[in-house]
């Protein structure tokens, strides 16, 4: 039997220590809607990367700022929107970490991973809010 959507939001201090609690809320919901391990891994990774970007780049490590997480989850899709209080950025200007000149940089892979694991990724024109959607993927057949 299909379950209705769960819609909610959280606003947390802009600190990486808040990430675990945020992940717990979202991943518990995915468990409730019986998403598989692949979907849970993908959403977890994208959420971690987006939250870290919001704290470190968006809010520039200012713990007095906040990150808002809006979510809408149902049987078919997981939609997350993360909004920071920074000045935004132009995602087109983020260097490709796979290029030879960047591949041994310690940072800069978050956006690439978000785009790889989520089916839709959109930034607001200001660039301080990202909306990302993962559709439920079929579970691989048992070996």
């Amino acid at each position: 039997m299909s379950q209705g959507p769960t819609i909610g939001s959280m606003e947390v201090h802009s600190s990486l220590s808040a990430l675990e609690g945020v992940c717990k809320v979202i991943l518990d919901l995915l468990g409730r809607y019986k998403y598989g391990d692949e979907d849970i891994f993908a959403v977890h990774l994208a959420l971690e990367e987006a939250f870290s970007n919001a704290v470190e780049h968006g809010n520039r490590g200012d713990p007095n700022k906040t990150v808002r997480i809006d979510y809408a989850i149902d049987d078919k899709r997981v939609e997350l929107r993360l909004t920071d209080q920074g000045n935004g950025f132009d995602p087109q200007k983020v260097p490709d970490p796979r290029l030879e000149e960047n591949i041994t940089e310690a940072r800069g892979r978050g956006l690439l991973l978000i785009r790889a694991y989520m089916d839709q990724v959109e930034f607001t024109p200001k660039g301080n809010s990202v909306r990302m959607v993962r559709m439920r993927h079929p579970e691989p057949a048992p070996q």
């Binding site: 870290s52 041994t104 940089e105 940072r107 892979r109 978050g110 991973l113």
Partner: peptide, 16 residues
């Protein structure tokens, strides 16, 4: 079972 790009960055630093 799980890692993020923060661990990849750590591995790059260690490898250097």
């Amino acid at each position: 079972e799980f890692l993020s790009s923060a661990i990849l960055g750590l591995l790059i630093r260690i490898s250097k």
